Simulated assay, not measured.
Amino acid sequence: MAEALRERIRSGHYQPGEWLPAERVLTEDLHVHRRVVRAAIAQLEKEGLLIRRPNCRPIVQAPAAPVADDLPTGSQFPASRLVALIMWHGAALGATGTAQQRIFWGMNQALGQAGYHGVFLDLGEEVGTEQENAEREATHLRYALDHGFGGIIFYAYAYDSNRELIQEVSRRMPLVLIDRMVPGVEADFVGTENRQAMFDATKYLIRQGHKRIAYVTKGESINPVQDRLQGYLRALREEFASDAYEMVLTAPFSDSSTWSVFDTVFKLPAEERPTAVLCVNDIEAVRVAKRLAELGLTVPEDVSLIGFDNIVRTLPGGVGLTTVGQPFEEIGKAATKMFLRRVDSAAVPQSHVELPAQLIERESSKSISDDSSG
């Protein structure tokens, strides 16, 4: 069983960064008992081919590359002391700087201590279409390759594009992906414990007395979006079992789009509509607050609201936003540590690190009585 799964990983049938199929699926597919599946998974975890986290399926890791004559060693990587951070600049939404700036600060501080210097290859303030993002990211990746940078730390938005180019970059120089994994790409990765953080935020609302908690997400398949959703669902099911009130809403693509399902839910009588909303990020929390105001509902008197990222401190009405704070500076430092580790030896196993996040309590969420929670 272990050899069968090992071969599927090596052949690319199971891509790095993807979840392994569920145990039930593997049991039926390979005609073995579930105990055998679990033993094989445990073996591949020891070999570094799978990563397991609590309450989720294992994540496929790329097999460690053999040391060959043409495999770069630390001394064969580019000797440049310049390390590129390729990402979007982001809009300034708070006094603490953008998430991207804070990642760069942490990265450059750690690089400076090691004798390197970070260079921000800015993709712009506005994220474009998938094609526009892919073209800009490809241009910057090739620029770093052609100009002999010593390595790249990369925050991808066009995660379904440029996979061959990104893989080429990872073969020619140290490459660290941050925030989101790119399926099919073998590279070091650092992100946030998104699933646990959203689980904790949901539990916080439950402790405040909320039972009808809605979740607003985005229609993206990237791991941060999906992990946060799973954290919300796990908290509800753990607390309420079969009686869990699950309300997952997808935010419209733009402010001009219709909010028909959202409006229908929040036009329900007070004893039926959600008393709290969790949002996939702070940007969506701001949009939700505006939409609630248009419906005549206030935060937190009518609806408690929690975001994610801690890049927005105050909602349009002046209410402080309760949110999950990502450790952006620490992400930059951790990515730098991975880069330096890869410089020392190109053959070290790939690393996957997720840093803890912290719930930041402000005025947008408040306790309610059992009677008002329904």
Rank of each mutant, 00 (worst) to 15 (best):
Q358F: 07
K333D: 12
A241D: 11
L297P: 12
Q358I: 10
S11N: 13
R53F: 14
T73D: 10
P66N: 10
D227W: 00
A335N: 09
T264E: 15
L50A: 09
I311Q: 02
V25I: 06
I206L: 11
E354F: 05
A110R: 15
V324D: 03
N133E: 10
Y159A: 10
L30N: 02
D302I: 07
G191I: 06
L165Y: 14
F149V: 13
R195E: 11
W19N: 07
I213N: 02
I222P: 01
C279T: 05
A289W: 00
S161I: 02
I331E: 06
I166L: 14
L49R: 05
F253R: 14
I178Q: 07
L30F: 15
N223E: 10
P274N: 08
L85N: 01
R228F: 04
D122N: 15
T129R: 04
L295Q: 11
H117Y: 07
E220G: 03
F189R: 06
A244R: 12
E330N: 09
S257M: 11
D69R: 07
R136I: 05
R180Y: 04
V32W: 09
E28F: 06
G151S: 11
H352E: 06
G151I: 05
T27S: 09
A347Q: 11
G94I: 03
F120C: 03
D282Q: 04
Q350P: 00
E272V: 13
A214T: 06
R142Y: 01
A346F: 11
V319F: 00
L233W: 02
F199C: 08
K366A: 15
L340R: 02
V176Q: 10
S304H: 02
V277P: 00
A201I: 00
G94N: 12
F120D: 03
V286W: 00
L123C: 13
P54H: 04
V32H: 05
G124N: 06
S373K: 09
Q350I: 09
P316H: 10
Y14M: 03
G17C: 08
P300Y: 01
P63F: 07
P16H: 08
Y204D: 07
L295F: 13
V169T: 15
Y159S: 13
G317D: 14
A244P: 04
G151F: 02
R38I: 00
P356G: 08
R273S: 07
V353T: 15
P327E: 06
V185E: 08
E125Y: 07
D263L: 11
G296D: 12
V83R: 00
K366N: 08
K211T: 12
E272H: 12
D160I: 03
N281H: 12
L85D: 00
I306F: 01
V248M: 03
Q100W: 04
H352Q: 14
A251Q: 01
M1E: 06
A114C: 05
A187W: 03
V324C: 01
G148I: 03
V37D: 00
R212G: 09
E164M: 13
T96K: 14
L297M: 10
A64F: 00
V299N: 06
D302Q: 09
R136H: 13
A84S: 13
Q326G: 02
D160S: 15
D255E: 14
G118C: 04
R142L: 13
C279G: 01
R57A: 13
D282H: 01
